[in-house]
Design a protein around this nucleic acid. Sequence first.
DNA 1: CGTTAAGTTGAAGGCGCTCAACCGACGTGG
DNA 2: CCACGTCGGTTGAGCGCCTTCAACTTAACG
Lengths: 261, 261
Amino acid sequence: MTSNALTRKLDRWEHLSDDDQVTLAAISGRIEPVARHKQLIEEGDDPRIVFLLIEGWAIRYKILPDGKRQIVAILLPGDLCDIHVFILDRMDHGIAMLTAGKIVRIPKDTMLAVVDQNPAIARALWWTTLVDEAVLREWLVNVGGRNAYARVAHLLCELYVRMGNVGLVTDGRMSLPLTQADLGQALGLTPVHVNRMLSQLRGKGLVTFRAFQLRILDLDGLIAAAGFDPGYLHGKRPERTIGSWSRPRRNSTAKLPESPA
Amino acid sequence: MTSNALTRKLDRWEHLSDDDQVTLAAISGRIEPVARHKQLIEEGDDPRIVFLLIEGWAIRYKILPDGKRQIVAILLPGDLCDIHVFILDRMDHGIAMLTAGKIVRIPKDTMLAVVDQNPAIARALWWTTLVDEAVLREWLVNVGGRNAYARVAHLLCELYVRMGNVGLVTDGRMSLPLTQADLGQALGLTPVHVNRMLSQLRGKGLVTFRAFQLRILDLDGLIAAAGFDPGYLHGKRPERTIGSWSRPRRNSTAKLPESPA
DNA sequence: CGTTAAGTTGAAGGCGCTCAACCGACGTGG
DNA sequence: CCACGTCGGTTGAGCGCCTTCAACTTAACG
């Protein structure tokens, strides 16, 4: 039960030896429960601790000058809340629990020591941060380029794959502890409109979402609606092959608009 | 002239010894010119080389299934095109020159060796990637949460600061080799609307932008229009103090909308 | 049973998009 | 040297996606 979500996740990228697994288990020793909506780090803080999310969901967010909250990442069990933020002097965003859950606090020094002595772990962790960044890029594409309907569908696809990667999808069903307002804040949409888009998705028989349970009824349909291509998640050795991604190869003759001298 | 932009930039974070500077100069040995619009890496490629941008501008972008291009990052002189992407097996985005310029190709192995042997450089590089990610987050906030007017203003603020950080702003003027269409692709707006927003900014006496020259007329006004807070750029030892950022402290009683169990 | 959070639905309005025409600068070639 | 094509920018008119505002329903929980 310890940090299974993390080892399972890392192991999908780079095979971890038993020693490595033990090391990971070791730093995951002191698991502590956290309450729903607990702020783990606030913007402006000096980050000295890395959080490993064992159980529950969390979000990374920023607050706009007018008070609006923009969610910039959704953290699932097994995710690290920025491995190396401590290089920076000041958090430029906050992290908060969405649900109650369990975390491990890893002090900066421990983190550095582990990374120093276990190249395999270091590489695996490195990989996770790059994937985080890739996800961030895709989110930008999502809100920058897709309409509301596809945008919602895309987020659902992503979460479905990521949850599957840590073994938290069973039979097309998964927990999705976000309110429609939360979804809106992640997608740059109003809660009302998120609601309408979800209705549409339900109407087309693609998904249902009630009582924070998401159920995928027609994955291929959802993928098509979203224009989803899981390549950016950089998955390897998928636990279970999901859908039929024959990589919906994009129009390779796509026009690339131009620029000046 | 070599890699001054890079050393100048890195030095702002962590003081680099003469040795470090020499090392950096060494890997910057083979500078090669690149043509305007040259694709440096394409989506799907297996990244084996890191590009250091010496001169000119480049963009990181993704293509949507419908052919639309979303710019996910703007790379200025001194920027590295992802130091460690080679951990990933496959590029999830493309990088292309916007202008003609000069680059250095750094093979993966060289990169690893330098980082291995020069902790100061490693940390400085590490820092740059974290800043890149912070910028990405702010972009997401920008397109997700701001209206078109503030969005344009915000991007201009950011580029102004970043260009200033590498010494490429003189007297409130800088080169900005993006067409209005390019700006639109970075901001999730249409070219026409970017045009109108720029007109408004000009109308209010904040900036002028003609012939790819940006001129800031009223920095404080622009900052206010954008709701800009440079904290996310994690600047240290600014080359020149810019404006009067007394950190427009956000409404600390801002409401944080809630979520479920 | 009363209260609070979340979801649902309707109506109206606006921000940004679409379509389209036109201008100006620049480069090329006849 | 002018004609023309291209590229980027500018402006106008109309439309539609999404927002805003508001009322109401449903679920959870004391």
